[in-house]
Write a protein that binds this DNA or RNA. Structure first.
Lengths: 196, 196
DNA sequence: CCAGTTCTTGACCGATCGGTCCATCATCAT
DNA sequence: ATGATGATGGACCGATCGGTCAAGAACTGG
């Protein structure tokens, strides 16, 4: 039919995501995107549209992937409460602190753009509601397994978990020492996921 | 001697801070700053230096002011534990949610700039260490007052409090419903500031 | 081989960016 | 009144911004 694409779409999207992730939306120029992808302007625009669309795309992929991973981790845990605890401490798993400094792509994008971009705000809202839903299922399971008190609404506990986790992620971005951060994450896990 | 300044420095700095606060650093142009301050380029540059210096200045003022306010609030509370709880729920005090959406100027700046700007990273690190120190004093007081268990390191509890509070602030930025957010903040306060 | 189609490259666009500079103006000490 | 001094406003700068477009390259179906 016609000339085939000379780039690997998945690799390009990963490179774009990483660029947005580390430098932010406003902080990455089109030239940055061309550099990290190796593409020309025309190719990038024909394939993905403008800068904003590209960001929307990679952020959507990111949310989808992380939620799938979260679901997998939660169901893989023999006890749901262990999965929830792991979710809270995950940001501190890289001992170098590099991952902690980088933060969460969704969180970074929300912080930067949600106040001025209603689409981004809506996307963030949706994503975190979904994440809360995923966690709430695990909380319900943990209740059934006798690891969490049954009196409270699972969604309420789930919201406390996401909130605490985003707090941990944020403190990582302030350059807080990783071992101290891990201790904080574990303290929060102990408090939020206690049997009483 | 010479022509005196025709602007109120404090008003100018407040306007600049609010602009950076709501639109972010990269998201505010010099023209934005001229617009909100009413100054000309020459005046702004002569008085405060370049854009980055101006940001550093207003952020420094902000940190100083908020830490003074925090100290005041903590010492004003008859029981230290009430002050700590208030700190956690403060981001949800505006029922319209506007304040929650706006977030924290220091937090926003950190999120946007710390990864790429080592000065910002160092400033954020310093600021949050100071904030932890302030809270740790209140935690120690609460321990003496019998409202918190004495076994744990005050600094450790203080770190958990800042982390949780920043989580609350962040969730506010995602557009989470304010009453739900308040409930989360209170849940976290209950868990972190419990007598056991 | 050719026609048709898509992809690629990079020149080019107007707008805006942060920042400099200077002519002019207002004030105060003399 | 006048000269020295600092504030002011805006013209101006080169660089870079995001985005468009056209000419040509690379491929496939005939």
């Amino acid at each position: 039919m016609a000339r085939p694409r000379q780039f690997d779409e998945k690799a390009v999207l990963t490179a774009v995501r990483d660029q947005f992730w580390t430098a932010g939306y406003a902080g990455t120029s089109l030239d940055d995107l061309l550099r990290v992808t190796g593409l020309g302007k025309g190719s990038l625009y024909a394939a993905f549209g403008d800068k904003r669309s590209l960001h929307r795309r990679v952020l959507g992929d990111y949310v989808e992937a992380t939620h799938a991973a979260l679901r997998a981790m939660l169901t893989a845990s023999p006890r749901a409460v262990d999965g929830l605890r792991r979710y809270l401490t995950a940001p501190t798993e890289d001992p170098t602190g590099a991952a902690a400094l980088r933060g969460c792509f969704l969180g970074n994008s929300t912080s930067e753009m949600a106040a001025a971009d209603t689409d981004m705000l809506a996307a963030a809202h949706r994503a975190f509601e979904e994440r809360t839903g995923i966690l709430a299922e695990a909380v319900a399971r943990a209740q059934h397994e006798g690891d969490l008190p049954t009196g409270t609404d699972p969604a309420e506990t789930a919201r406390a978990v996401v909130t605490a986790q985003q707090g941990v992620v944020f403190m990582g971005r302030t350059g807080m020492d990783v071992t101290a951060l891990r201790a904080v994450a574990e303290t929060l896990a102990d408090r939020i996921l206690s049997r009483v």
